[in-house]
Design a protein around this nucleic acid. Structure first.
Lengths: 351, 351
DNA sequence: CCGAAATCTTGAAACGTCTCAAACCGTTAT
DNA sequence: ATAACGGTTTGAGACGTTTCAAGATTTCGG
């Protein structure tokens, strides 16, 4: 026995028809007032609008979308809702979407290909107008399927989507690594350890390559001056655990500069150093990656490579909108430049 | 001239009807296979299922929801997509929703009542089955409007929703403050500063009250032993700026213990101490609130009051489901208990 | 004051699915 | 042989909106 407040199930919930009756016009006119008010005479328009607010009418998007074929929501498929990097991106997307009156359907693939697949299917069922997705891997077949279903998409944080297949928005990870390397070189460091070599992740590999490139450009052989320490997972805990392994390089020399694959590792590493009584940056310089908001909350402030996260989200949504509006498909690959943010976790090498 | 890949606009996109034709049955049967397979004879069922996969059919949720009156998505209205507290909650909600095959529509009210209002309206238009909302203020009228529109909701992080009006899920902030206070008292501290008195925010006021209650219970007059420092905003920057103001209490004595309204303030405060060469916990003990993941990444590890964020999200979604399924409206108020996590930012008072 | 043009309104047909009562069919009980 | 029955299938509306051709009304030049 449903309570009377639940109007969903009521037999004649107020719809366009009720409004029309109340205003003494036809349903078509009400629809026009809602969608193309300029077609309706001033007098009728206000009459209808009054009826709308009197009856507290709310458009039913199901009927609307079904008939018009236009959806009013877009999907956002992230790898990990919890990751601060993504949330900042999400803010950009949400904001841009809100401006177009679009609702964002949030789905989490939790790094799992099956979940990604299931979620993309859900988006297809929901007939979203488009989707911003951070793919779990290089396999684009699911995305192509989505495309065949008539759903536009933009890949986020993956620079390797062929430009004739789809749009993508990303940040140049190699350049980020380069910037970090150059910074440390400028401070006089000649040996740097890269902490976080999980090269299954494209982004991380590129950061490492950028670091090496910096040494190359400076006329120093990377194989000799860049040490690599691998981590099973890219989190703070692993970063902390690695301290002893990192502190002496292959030749038994004391490590004075570390470039971490992300900020979380860097924080963990700094914590480990702190526990051992070592000081940052005096004993060891540390550079992170991402510029999470906490990078600026800790002491010492973490020098790190910032990604324009918010902009990334906005851009993705803009590309998506363009694709949704335009009758002509035109894909675009937008690559942002990272930016080194200097704080207090790095200093000139002196002994 | 739309490209042929866009099947949305095609005149006869594959629907239930095409599948039916292909399988040599009626549309009604296909619908049954999809929704009540047990009604359909084995042979027919497989025949239909083959047709479905051959044609790569995907259900159109607009048609489905329009006819059945059932929606397959729920709304999630947060105060700030960026806040790590909310993202953890979001994960709980997303996960619970995914298990029921529901999609989560994410909206951000960015602490603005107007945006909350606009977003609730959007949810009503989308005819979501229900919504989890973190209200921006005490004004429930928008939520009541939503209810009248037939959308169920659960309030999150607000314990003050009357139980005959709607369900709510929250954490007992007073108890959290109490726990923090008891912890500091047990360590021998007799004077504590509460940093972050923005009492417009209910949650913060309760934490402060809890702290005072701890002193009261210990037979110490709160007015005399608890100092209050107000902040214009509850972020790290304000926390750092407040250091000098906090360091000496009203009577010119050195402050030895600080309880911060949230972890971000605590981190900023610790940073400020670090810059002045003061050590945590030796010079000042610091307690935070929230147990953000970074609390365990910094050095020293931050002692803080943890909220069961993930559980909070799950519980909210469960209550919502119950409300959506049950024909009988029954509201519930679920209050979780916070938990003090002891790390290394607090220690016994010694001089 | 006429007719045509411009402006406004509307009837009726979709959109894709679900639902329900009715139809169908092969069995079994009478 | 007939009736009744359980198990399957289906025809024919809805659901609430948009759309578009066509109808109704007003405006305006001549």
């Amino acid at each position: 026995m449903p309570k009377s407040t639940n109007r969903t199930s009521g037999p004649n919930r107020t719809g366009i028809t009720q409004v029309a009756a109340h205003a003494g016009v036809s349903p078509a006119t009400v629809s026009n007032v809602l969608n193309r008010p300029e077609l309706v005479a001033e007098a009728t328009r206000t009459k209808v609008q009054e009826a709308i607010s009197e009856l507290d009418y709310v458009r039913n998007s199901f009927g609307s979308s079904l008939r018009s074929g236009r959806s009013t929501s877009v999907g956002l498929l992230v790898l990990d809702v919890t990751n601060p990097f993504f949330t900042e991106v999400a803010r950009g997307i949400e904001e841009e979407a809100a401006e177009s009156g679009l609702a964002v359907v949030l789905l989490n693939s939790a790094e799992s290909p099956e979940r990604q697949r299931r979620n993309l299917r859900l988006l297809a069922e929901q007939r979203v107008a488009g989707a911003v997705v951070m793919p779990v891997d290089n396999d684009l077949s699911d995305l192509l399927w989505l495309q065949r279903q008539g759903v536009h998409w933009v890949a986020l944080d993956r620079g390797d989507v062929p430009e004739d297949v789809g749009s993508s928005v990303s940040v140049d990870n190699r350049e980020g690594g380069l910037a970090a390397g150059q910074h440390l070189l400028a401070l006089g460091h000649r040996r740097v350890t890269f902490l976080g070599g999980a090269f299954a992740i494209e982004q991380v590999r590129l950061r490492y390559e950028g670091l090496r490139a910096a040494f190359d450009e400076a006329g120093l052989d990377p194989d000799e001056h860049v040490e690599l320490v691998s981590l099973s997972q890219l989190n703070a805990h692993q970063g902390e655990r690695a301290v002893d392994q990192v502190l002496l390089d292959g030749a038994g020399r004391r490590t004075r500069a570390v470039f971490c694959a992300n900020d979380q590792i860097a924080l963990g590493f700094m914590k480990g150093l702190g526990k051992r009584g070592l000081r940052v940056p005096d004993d060891v310089s540390v550079v992170g990656y991402d510029d999470l908001s906490v990078a600026d909350m800790v002491h010492p402030g973490l020098t790190t490579v910032a990604q324009p996260k918010y902009e990334l989200g906005r851009a993705a949504m803009q590309l998506l909108s363009a694709q949704m509006d335009g009758s002509e498909q035109s894909y675009e690959r937008r690559i942002f430049r990272p930016r080194l943010v200097m704080r207090d976790s790095t200093c000139a090498l002196r002994d």
